[in-house]
Design a protein around this nucleic acid. Structure first.
Length: 566
RNA sequence: CGGGGUGUAGCUCAGCUUGGUAGAGCGCUUGCUUCGGGAGCAAGAGGUCGCAGGUUCAAAUCCUGUCACCCCGACCA
């Protein structure tokens, strides 16, 4: 491709509303342009990268035995009614009406559609297992789209669905997909980590996420420093602490006129924050309220808490009025002693002895409190977010918190959708069975942004070879003055192109500065500079993007190709 | 959805308090000189100041409404 003909609007200045590096670089490199909040056009350079990612995903899905299909984006709302997700999925689901006032949704994910597709034609167990996938534009009406393509409302996703007669066959396919995903991210050339996850709105039993590790990631991951244990913070299990020490102090009431936080109380008493306990009052599932007890230095894990049978899901905090009515005192002085709502203690809080908590009386806290002695033994559960330094749940190493960008998510849904939509299949004995299913998603467009987050420098993008928009850029210097340079560059370009190398010829006639700046910005992995000085010595200058210095090579296409394969 | 903020040239922004000729830098066009890491000089093009009302002799500026976008919180590939 000749750069003079390529629609490549690069900019030196950064648009004001781009926060993270991938968004800035994608705009500056002329890869994308915004049409509205969270909706973007892909320009030629960006689309080439997107297509490369898509191709790798498609190849590996095919290799793993999945079959490509294409399902509609516009879906009759009844189907979502049938699965129960029309209301459950919430406002993120974009609803539209046709001319007959019939309701449709724009598909944010396709469990319903694919399950409907299957139920229409599935008769016999002999048709199973089957894995279908598509690569398609999805629409999710995100509350707050941000970071450009990273969290767009419209985005390209690969979604695959598998159906099985038996759970163990689902497990086999889940592993197969897991391995295919690992190959995909390896081929793309990004550093990733597989983490245990919560299955969220998709629902189901077992799920894992694939994360590209990057400081700008929106997810916090807990990873062990000594094993391969890794989990999303939402799902990371807090290790069970050692046994509870025996009580040593007597219960005492202390005046805390203005201390309404654990920090303030601990400060006043000169005790570590980890000896205090706080009460988080939430709506209960059966009872109106439930009180969660956590150590002062710990935080509630919203996902874990909402899974507890005594807690309403999704988690809702109690209002101040409800708290006053139940405890006879406002938040800030709450404690488990004499509490009249069910108490659930986090494992760490339950293992404390001689702890400090609110007295359920304005202006007073208690110290030397002990479970069993001063208040009833609580229900114990894992309720908190893990913190850096916690022991890894697998018993090996300590947890570190790192950030990641979720680029893939695999689930075993079991019979969640097949049962809801009434899918039936005959088994070997002629019995009626409900098949089980798995689903497997990859954020194709998000991978493009994630790769940039991981691979860039001050000058611009540093593409991994596998998804670079072009392989080589040829930069002639002073081609307007030197026909030798112009011809040598043109010949090199022709020979590389003829050999099937994706080559960009910068024939814009720019001065070296802007030309190199653009080459660095768009991140083409290999750069060949053709200049009069070099040609006089029979040489081109070669530089690998991201490498330190340039080197001189023989002024032939063969020498360049040798560098490409090196 | 709640809280905060911004809409003026392609981009980054000034001008608004105190109403009176719409500006700068970058980018773009043309010419000349330059030419190995975002050149210099000269001449140009380009804006119904987000939109709609209102106040006024006069509105980018004041008032009302409205739309869009951005940032902070709960969701997800």
């Amino acid at each position: 491709m000749r750069l003079s003909r390529l629609w490549l609007p690069t900019t030196k200045e950064t648009p004001a509303d781009a926060e993270i590096v991938s968004h800035r670089l994608m705009l500056r490199a002329g890869m994308i342009r915004k049409l509205g909040a969270g909706i973007y056009s892909w320009l030629p350079l960006g689309l080439r990268v997107l297509r490369k990612v898509e191709t790798i995903v498609r190849q590996e899905m095919d290799r793993a035995g999945a079959q490509e299909i294409s399902m509609p984006m516009v879906i009759p709302a009844e189907l979502w009614q049938e699965s129960g997700r029309l209301t459950k999925y919430g406002p993120e689901l974009l609803r539209i009406e046709d001319r007959h006032q019939r309701d449709f949704v724009l598909g944010p994910t396709h469990e319903e559609v694919v399950t409907d597709l299957i139920r229409r034609d599935l008769r016999s167990y002999k048709q199973l297992p089957v894995t279908l996938y598509q690569i398609q534009t999805k629409f999710r009406d995100e509350i707050r789209p941000r970071f450009g393509i990273m969290r767009g409302r419209e985005f390209l996703m690969k979604d695959a669905y598998s159906f099985h007669l038996e759970a163990d066959d689902l497990e086999r396919e889940y592993r197969n997909m897991r391995a295919a995903y690992a190959r995909i991210f390896e081929r793309i050339g990004v550093e990733f980590r597989i983490v245990k996850a919560d299955s969220g709105a998709i629902g189901g039993d077992r799920s894992e996420e694939f994360h590209v590790l990057a400081g700008s990631g929106e997810d916090v991951l807990a990873v062990s420093d000594a094993s391969d244990y890794a989990a999303n913070l939402e799902a990371a299990e807090a290790a069970i602490p050692a046994v509870r020490p025996s009580a040593a102090e007597a219960l005492a009431r202390v005046a805390t006129p203005a201390q309404t936080t654990c920090e303030a109380v601990a400060g006043l008493l000169g005790e570590p924050l980890s000896r205090t306990v706080k009460l988080v009052v939430v709506k209960g599932r059966e009872q109106p309220l439930a009180a969660l007890v956590l150590r002062g230095d710990h935080e509630v894990n919203v996902v874990k808490a909402a899974k507890h049978p005594m807690v309403a899901a999704p988690l809702q905090l109690a209002g101040e009025a409800e708290i006053r009515a139940a405890f006879g005192c406002p938040p800030g002085f709450l404690g488990p002693v004499g509490a009249c709502v069910p108490v659930i203690a986090d494992r760490s809080a339950a293992m404390l002895a001689d702890f400090i908590c609110g007295a359920n009386e304005v202006g007073f806290h208690l110290r030397g409190v002990n479970w069993g002695r001063d208040c009833t033994e609580p229900v114990v559960a894992d309720l908190r977010n893990v913190v850096a330094g916690d022991p890894s749940p697998d018993g090996r190493g300590r947890l570190q918190l790192v950030r990641g960008i979720e680029v893939g998510h695999i689930f075993q849904n079991g019979a969640l959708y097949t049962a809801a939509l009434g899918v039936r299949v005959q088994d070997e004995q002629g019995g009626d069975r409900i098949p089980v299913a798995g689903c497997y998603g990859i954020g194709v467009s998000r991978i493009v942004a994630a790769a940039i987050e991981q691979r860039h420098d001050e000058a611009g993008i540093v593409w991994p070879e596998a998804i670079a928009p072009f392989s080589v850029i040829v930069c002639p210097i002073g081609a307007g003055q030197s026909t030798a340079v112009a011809e040598a560059a043109q010949n090199l370009y022709d020979e590389l192109a003829a050999a099937g190398v994706e080559t960009l010829l910068d024939d814009r006639g720019l001065r070296p500065g802007p030309m190199f700046a653009d080459a660095d910005l768009i991140g083409v992995p290999h750069r060949v500079v053709v200049g009069e000085r070099g040609l006089a010595a029979g040489q081109f200058e070669y530089k690998r993007r991201g490498a330190g210095a340039a080197e001189m090579i023989a002024a032939t296409a063969a020498a360049v190709r040798e560098k490409l394969s090196a």
